[in-house]
Simulated assay, not measured.
Amino acid sequence: MPVTKAYPFEPEEAPPEYRGIPRIDPVLCIGCGACANACPPNAILRIDDPENGTRRIVLDVGRCIRCARCEEVCPTGAVRLTAEFEAATDDRNDHVEIVELRLARCRGCGKYTCYTERQVEKVLSLIPRGILDFDRVREKLPLCSECKLKLTVLNATKFGEVEP
């Protein structure tokens, strides 16, 4: 029985409880940014570009402390810790993973909102049919903060909660 292992020439298998390098599944990611909010070392960033209507979720594996908070809070299961432990590389860019998503446009004014198109679709998929007027809800999602404020004031005055 050999005393030493042939690593790195032969891959070594991590134990099942090992928390390795996180990965983001770009198909499952809705761009909500929950992972970025929960990440203690800021290894995951949410970067919005409202001019171009995009949101980037940027994972920097080099900053990750493998705490698994990102995996715990992800509502779609897009973030998963792998069994990979080998993070050595010659190129710093190998540590950076980017998921780019489209921001949704406001149904009121057409500006980009703070939600991605996938977030809106996810919310709509969670609304049970028959409980709410789905078409009415769909017509109001998403709204920018200015249009939400206008709608709130309009609804409040319509129901007599605010005196003119």
Rank of each mutant, 00 (worst) to 15 (best):
R55L: 12
T54R: 10
I131G: 09
P164A: 14
D90S: 09
C32G: 13
I127A: 10
R136M: 10
V3S: 12
D94T: 00
I44N: 02
Y112G: 09
I30Q: 02
R107W: 02
K122D: 10
R69E: 07
K158V: 12
C106L: 01
D94F: 04
G20K: 03
E51V: 14
K122L: 09
K158L: 12
F9R: 08
C114D: 15
V99F: 03
G53T: 04
P11T: 08
E86T: 05
R118F: 07
L149R: 15
L143A: 08
G20Y: 05
S145R: 15
T152Q: 15
C70I: 03
E117H: 09
A43T: 03
C29N: 01
Q119T: 05
K150P: 08
T89Q: 05
T4Y: 15
V162E: 06
R105T: 04
L124H: 14
E163Q: 12
A87D: 10
E163M: 13
N155A: 15
A36V: 04
C32V: 00
C67P: 01
C109S: 03
R19A: 15
A156T: 05
C70W: 00
N155S: 11
E146L: 15
E71G: 04
C74H: 01
G20E: 00
E161I: 05
R102V: 02
N155W: 07
R69Q: 09
N37D: 15
L149T: 13
E71K: 11
R92I: 08
E121G: 02
C147V: 13
L141K: 01
A156S: 12
F85N: 01
E161T: 05
V27I: 14
M1I: 14
P40C: 09
I21Q: 04
E84C: 01
A6F: 14
N37T: 12
E139R: 11
K140C: 14
P41E: 03
R55S: 10
V79N: 00
L103R: 02
I21S: 03
R105M: 06
L124V: 11
G110M: 03
R69G: 05
N155D: 14
C114G: 14
A87L: 06
P26N: 01
P16D: 03
A87Y: 05
E97C: 01
R46P: 14
A38M: 05
H95V: 02
L151T: 06
E51S: 14
C74F: 04
R102P: 09
L149Y: 14
D25N: 11
I24R: 00
F134K: 08
R66F: 11
L45I: 04
P75Y: 05
V153I: 10
A156G: 13
A14P: 00
R107M: 02
N52H: 11
M1Y: 08
I131H: 06
P75H: 05
